[in-house]
Design a protein around this nucleic acid. Structure first.
Lengths: 335, 335
DNA sequence: TTTATTTACGAAACCGTTTTCGCAAATATG
DNA sequence: CATATTTGCGAAAACGGTTTCGTAAATAAA
């Protein structure tokens, strides 16, 4: 194994206690001794064993990030945000992917029960209807911050964007562009943020004095092939929509693919606006009108709140809610 | 704190040793006792403290993934591959981002010296010219596997794609499509895989009986704005290229943006082929011809090799090399 | 029946730190 | 000069498991 504190102690004829204190610049140790210790530590390339420290100090300097997947612009950007503050604080980041699977999410959270991490940042799976496993974690006093896909019935901090307004705006945008029959693409019925976006969609329609009956809500399962089929089906019906609001990025891409296959022109036959963080939205064919979420900022904000809670032992995360606004970027897919 | 092994011992009137053994189904413990222990453990929701175990067992069931960034299709897909095998093996995954920064990479690796992780998967930063910090880690006997951006002078396992051939093929493709003056977009001069791609580029040109002097190598720094400028400059010169090989995804996107600004048509004025894993390459305007790397498979392969080394203590990682082939997908950007 | 072996468990050391407490020597205070 | 206080350090007890080794009882072998 590597060099240990005991080795330094022997070499310098000091006790391990002294070494330990000297390493953390304790006032109990004389300047001269500190110098000697630091010098030898550097020479021998000593670094304390993190697990011994964690065990004794009951803190791991590690946080967990639990997300559905990483191959999604929103999540990869928010990881950047999270990592930027974790690195600054000297914390380590464990990544866990649920792949939208409830059981994976459940077993991942179970593992946090015993001190592996000091805090958790989480965006829940779309399959997750039952929140018992999250509540169980929450009840262990584990600092927990949701971002984006929050869980409204768990009373802890949440970082979201203005989903309702964005859904409203996206929809109004399509209506203003002349759409008569809209389709809202969503995945599952469990995610509150998607439901907020949907509420915005509905409100926008009724505010325009239109009838909900002429508009569709298309539920696309997590599976790519399935959602492809669902969208294809609705587009080959006789009352096909002339505009889509995609509540997640992936579904916009699926819609693009289907339109291509069906020979439908975007934006001529069908207009599309999507909740998306694709940096290359402007390079798509046609360029994609997006509701762009502040993904990096949301990750950063969530991590910042979590660290506040980690630093002040009795910081109250209860129901804190940060809303960072998304922005509608008009491009050719809704021209 | 949570429930500990001592609590179980007291409750069941057994020693902690017995509990510990029962939990791991040791043959020393009677079936009946095991049952009782497991039952109580489930009831009290007991899970062993991972750091206490790690300390005693000198193994952490954790691996580190060190990559330049996560907001890049290649890396996010390979994380998926890595995570899939880690999850299967019951391992935890720590993520570290270097942001292409040498010093960050250095300080990240330094932290692995003392048992925090059992193994490391790594793709080196483009700024990294000096490999001392990696060698230092390697010399601690830490199992280390490179993927994609490997370090040829460190004698450990590497997972790569056929970079030379791919560079060759991409270039030949452009020449076959009638390009007369090519530009190779690369970042820095440190990455061996980029250099391999470049060698393929050069070989392809000379094999075609052409003169290297009519072709450019455009070095684009990590910074987005800088590479934008570099590409813009070359495209506004009088001897501007009519074809690009982008050695990384991001540079292809930059080239697209520049062409758009300059009013140059792809593929009419400039053709583009890129090393890229964008799943939506076909939806770009124009759709992008890619050398698609098997990102998921590469991550998976790298992790699989690492776990082999972790399972057999004396497995020899020395210079093992896995090559997984990329595929050229012809699309409109080179039509 | 006697001896050898197996079964089932416990005591205690150990992993490498951190932290509390105690205690001399050095310095300050009156 | 006598008494307080400060300074600088070490002994030892945690932290929560795992593992080695010993041993009494139960069973098998002779």
């Amino acid at each position: 194994m590597n060099v240990k504190i005991k080795d330094l102690a022997k070499e310098l004829q000091l006790s391990v206690a002294t070494i330990s204190k000297a390493m953390k610049d304790s006032h109990e140790i004389s300047a001269e001794t500190k110098q000697r210790v630091l010098a030898l530590a550097k020479k021998l390339n000593y670094t304390p064993n993190p697990y011994a420290s964690s065990l004794r100090k009951r803190s791991s300097k590690t946080i967990a990030v639990v997300i559905p997947e990483v191959a999604d612009t929103f999540f990869s950007l928010s990881i950047n945000g999270i990592e930027s503050v974790a690195q600054e604080k000297g914390f380590h980041v464990l990544i866990y992917l649920t792949h939208e699977n409830f059981f994976k999410e459940e077993s991942i959270l179970k593992d946090f029960q015993n001190g592996r991490v000091d805090g958790v940042l989480m965006s829940v799976s779309s399959e997750t209807a039952n929140h018992r496993h999250i509540l169980e974690l929450f009840n262990t006093e584990m600092p927990l911050v949701f971002f984006d896909r929050v869980c409204e019935d768990i009373h802890t901090a949440k970082v979201v964007t203005n989903d309702f307004e964005s859904g409203y705006k996206a929809t109004r945008h399509l209506l203003e562009k002349g759409c008569k029959r809209l389709g809202f693409l969503c995945m599952g019925e469990n995610l509150s943020i998607i439901n907020d976006r949907l509420e915005g969609f509905k409100k926008s329609i009724s505010d325009a004095g239109l009838d909900q009956k002429n508009h569709f809500i298309i539920n696309c399962p997590a599976d790519e092939g399935q959602s492809h089929k669902s969208i294809k089906k609705i587009l080959s019906g006789k009352k096909k929509p002339d505009g889509f609001v995609a509540s997640v990025e992936k579904l916009a891409m699926t819609a693009y693919n289907v339109c291509k296959e069906e020979g439908l022109s975007i934006p001529h036959d069908v207009k599309v606006v999507a909740f998306s963080n694709l940096q290359i939205a402007s390079l798509l064919n046609p360029s994609l009108t997006t509701i762009t979420q502040p993904a990096f900022e949301m990750g950063k904000a969530a991590a910042t709140i979590l660290f506040k809670a980690l630093e002040k032992s009795r910081y109250n995360l209860k129901d804190e809610r940060v809303v960072i606004e998304s922005v509608l970027m008009e491009r050719d897919s809704t021209k």
